[in-house]
Write a protein that binds this DNA or RNA. Structure first.
Lengths: 334, 334
DNA sequence: AGGACAAATGTAAGCGCTTTCATTTCGATT
DNA sequence: AATCGAAATGAAAGCGCTTACATTTGTCCT
């Protein structure tokens, strides 16, 4: 391995000078600068980043923890973070939590051990208390797509209540009255918010959302299928369903077909997330979109600012959900 | 920051001893071991990984370069690599190339600068010559899902020819004779292999694949749509189409519908990859599956072995494509 | 010519660890 | 009790950089 010492010898200068032409070129005379460039070129010198980071006590990298890499949900946000940082020459390194609280904790620790200058974490297994503890201890943590009240300034998230409200209003505007929802697990804060907004908007329209019209599933296709079957069996008369993600919505549509119901004629369905599946399934799914990439870049920018102790006031924290109309909602038959 | 020195002082031992209890616990007496554990516990000591890596001249991490994070195609492979390494305590750090040759080069360099012990790269912009150059210089490089002849032992890839053959045989077995293909860009080696296998199998059945029945598209949905429209316009009589990925296949199906053709009754379609979209689109797409996760884990294991100069002979390099029958292929009408 | 000041460079300490080598400690053996 | 070898520990060098500080060189005045 060719080191800075080799270059300095070949160029006939001190290592300090070599280091300077790399990091503060304006501090050194043009002639010696050329000398160094030539030498380092000839030797094929590449600075050892580990050594540099140790000496600088900063790594110029942002860590990111996500549940997994396979789901585009995280992938898009990751790409967003990356996009926000690539221009500044900073790097992002990502680690997966494998969807457990222990994993989330471990990943954060590992990223801290690596001396990341800031860390963006998507956590939905760790509870508020544990998360708050971590955020208190480490001021360079950013929470991705989740709100942790006491550390609001370090959270970037979707307005899930708005999302729920939009879904409800669209269904109401289309003339529906008998409305149900396939919600995600109660442990997810997003789920609680979406439900709140949804129920709220129904209430404003004089419509109730009794517990019997809230059915839980696990965000999977199969879960959506089961949920809809349950719902139709128990609650006849339902003409519209709001599912908390697109997969469950598609599952619900499949189940509806199997039960002889046609979508949207007999049953309107609205999803959440606007992942690729929403635009590709047939009929194309009406859904609530969330700007995942933008959320990612905001996290990246926030983390970057935090790590340099720069001003963060200009960075957007709350993003709006948006109704994406496609083909699965229509007026109810009667 | 609490360092190893702090711990050593608190425990009343030397830093060497603290280091030993962390890395070679059996070398130190049980009593002093406890002493150190208690001290490091009380101080909340966390070893600085950067410093450790510098001293060890090894980072115990594998770098991975992929086109982007957003596509599950790469995400699944990444997850595979991660899965292969997590058990051994090694980490993976990933970087994106942003789909350019320059980006691929830059990402590899960056990962090398970070002293990754081995690097797994998915490259489809860099050409064979450039890649060979890199592989010659760096013996710790592994090529993911691509074959580079002179460095076969460091490549893990799908048998794309087999994939093409399977597609052709399935179509032939279903009774088709007028067969066309929507291929990816010629620059992709996968594309060339798939085409080779496809044409070969047709040939064996006495069927030809004239250039007029090969249409190129860019792996996108829209590209698939356009390609099919072209094809039908120019080549009447085609009853079956093999698309080089699922997105183009779905695009083709959409275009077919728009032209009043029904799938599979008027036109059979077979895709490639078996991504989520294949199972979710309606009608569900018949396709050629590739074991992306397994390919990823094989890359991870190979990289790990390479970095330790361990035996790699047991690691699988070539993976078989597999026919996944769903609903878009049937016998031709006549 | 001499001095003051800025610009350019070098010296060396230090970042937080690991590891070699030397030293000490401790049973076991005579 | 003396001796020996193995086990446990410590001292210190070193990993490849950066940077504070000291030194040298060059420029411009008077």
């Amino acid at each position: 391995m060719v080191t800075i010492l080799d270059v300095s010898r070949k160029a006939g200068v001190s290592t300090a000078t070599v280091s300077r032409v790399l990091n503060h070129p304006d501090m050194v005379d043009e002639k010696t600068r050329d000398l160094v460039h030539v030498a380092s070129e000839q030797l094929g010198y590449r600075p050892n980043r580990i050594a540099r980071d140790l000496a600088r006590r900063s790594s110029q990298t942002i860590g990111v923890v996500v549940n997994n890499f396979a789901s585009p949900y995280y992938g898009v946000m990751l790409d967003g973070v990356d996009e926000a940082l690539v221009a500044s020459g900073w790097n992002v390194i990502a680690e997966t939590s494998r969807e457990t609280a222990a994993g989330e904790f471990r990943a954060i620790q590992s990223l801290m051990d690596r001396q990341c200058d800031a860390i963006v974490v998507h956590a939905n297994s760790l509870d508020d208390a544990a998360l708050a503890e971590l955020f208190r201890k480490n001021p360079k943590l950013v929470l991705m797509n989740r709100l942790l009240e006491p550390f609001q300034s370090r959270c970037v998230y979707l307005d899930n209540e708005l999302g729920g409200r939009l879904a409800a209003r669209h269904l109401i505007a289309s003339g529906h009255v008998d409305i149900a929802t396939i919600a995600g697990p109660e442990t997810f804060h997003e789920v609680r918010s979406r439900l709140k907004g949804f129920a709220g908007a129904l209430g404003e329209a004089g419509l109730a959302l009794p517990d019997s019209r809230i059915v839980r599933a696990d965000f999977s296709l199969a879960g959506g299928r089961r949920a809809l079957a349950d719902l139709i069996e128990r609650q006849s008369g339902v003409t519209a369903v709001f599912a908390h993600n697109d997969e469950m919505a598609v599952g619900a549509i499949e189940a509806a077909y199997q039960m002889g119901l046609s979508v949207p004629d007999d049953l309107s369905v609205i999803g959440f997330d606007d992942m690729t599946i929403a635009s590709l399934s047939r009929p194309a799914l009406t859904t609530i979109g969330q700007p995942l990439r933008a959320i990612g870049t905001a996290c990246g920018r926030l983390a970057h600012a935090l790590s340099r102790e720069a001003d963060t006031s200009e960075i957007r924290r709350v993003f709006d959900a948006e109704l994406i109309e496609r083909e699965t909602v229509s007026e109810p038959r009667h």
